[in-house]
C-alpha cells in the first residue's frame, strides 16, 4: 500500500552542478494513520452495539380500590405455580383456595424438554392459544399479514377471557432468576394472562410436604 517514489522524478538535474535543495515528495505515507482510524472505528462500532440492554415489559394488574371489583378467575382455567429455593417448582391446576379439596401437587423443573419441565405443562394447557399465536407470527413472517394487524390478533388471542390464567407465587426463599424464568416462559408459551401473587400459608405447607 505504501507509496513508491518515482526514481526519475529529479533525475534530470544531475548534469547541473548547482546545489539544489532536495525535492522531497509531497506524498505522505498514510498507512499507519489509516490503520489507526480503522482500529478506532472497529472499537467504537463494537462497543456501541453491545451495550444496549434488553428488557422485559411487565404490567402488574391494577389494584382495585374495592375488593369486590376484583376479577374472579374460574377454577378450571387457573394454573398455580409455586416457586421455592433451589429452582424448585410445585404446580397444580385450580386456585387451591377451597380447604375441603386440597389440590393435587406436582413438582417440576426449569428444563425445556425434560420429562418434568414446566415448559411442557404450560404449553399443554395453553396449546390452543399458542398454536394460534404461532400461526399469526408465521404469517407475519411470510408477509401475509401486516405487522401491526398481526399484533392486534395476537393480543386478542392472548386476552381470551376463558383462556389459561397462570398464578405465579414465589415463596420467601425463591430467587429473582426463577421469577424471571417463569415470566419468560409466559412469553414463550404465549400466555397472556398471568399474575404474580403472594403465597398463602396453606401453599407454604404444600411446598414443605412436597419436599
Amino acid at each position: 500500500m505504501s507509496e513508491i517514489q518515482q526514481s526519475d522524478s529529479g533525475g534530470g538535474d544531475k548534469k547541473h552542478s548547482k546545489v539544489r535543495a532536495k525535492k522531497s515528495s509531497t506524498h505522505i505515507d498514510m498507512t499507519p494513520m489509516v490503520d489507526l482510524a480503522f482500529l478506532l472505528l472497529t472499537f467504537f462500532m463494537l462497543t456501541t452495539t453491545f451495550s444496549k440492554p434488553k428488557t422485559m415489559e411487565i404490567n402488574m394488574p391494577v389494584k382495585p380500590d374495592k375488593p369486590e371489583e376484583e376479577q374472579k378467575i374460574k377454577e378450571s382455567q387457573a394454573l398455580t405455580i409455586l416457586l421455592s429455593a433451589n429452582n424448585k417448582i410445585v404446580w397444580y391446576t385450580g386456585l387451591g383456595d377451597d380447604p375441603a379439596k386440597p389440590p393435587v401437587t406436582n413438582t417440576a423443573d426449569f428444563s425445556l424438554n425434560g420429562p418434568r419441565g414446566i415448559h411442557k405443562v404450560i404449553l399443554e394447557k395453553n396449546q390452543d392459544i399458542f398454536t394460534k399465536v404461532q400461526l399469526t407470527k408465521d404469517s407475519i413472517g411470510r408477509g401475509l399479514l401486516k405487522e401491526d394487524e398481526g399484533k392486534k390478533h395476537i393480543a386478542s388471542y392472548k386476552g381470551f377471557k376463558d383462556g389459561l390464567v397462570v398464578l405465579i407465587k414465589p415463596d420467601s426463599t425463591a430467587k429473582y432468576k426463577n421469577v424471571v424464568d417463569i415470566l419468560d416462559e409466559m412469553n414463550v408459551c404465549a400466555v397472556g394472562r398471568f399474575a404474580i401473587v403472594d403465597i398463602t400459608e396453606s401453599e407454604k405447607e404444600l411446598l414443605k410436604i412436597s419436599n
Partner: peptide
C-alpha cells in the same frame, strides 16, 4: 437476589400506582 426484596420493590412501585415497568434481562 432473593425474591422478597424484589417483591418489596414491586410493592413500593404499586403503592405509587406504577403498574407498568421493565425488567432488565
Amino acid at each position: 437476589a432473593n425474591y422478597p426484596v424484589v417483591k418489596d420493590v414491586i410493592k413500593t412501585l404499586q403503592g405509587q400506582k406504577v403498574n407498568k415497568f421493565n425488567l432488565i434481562t
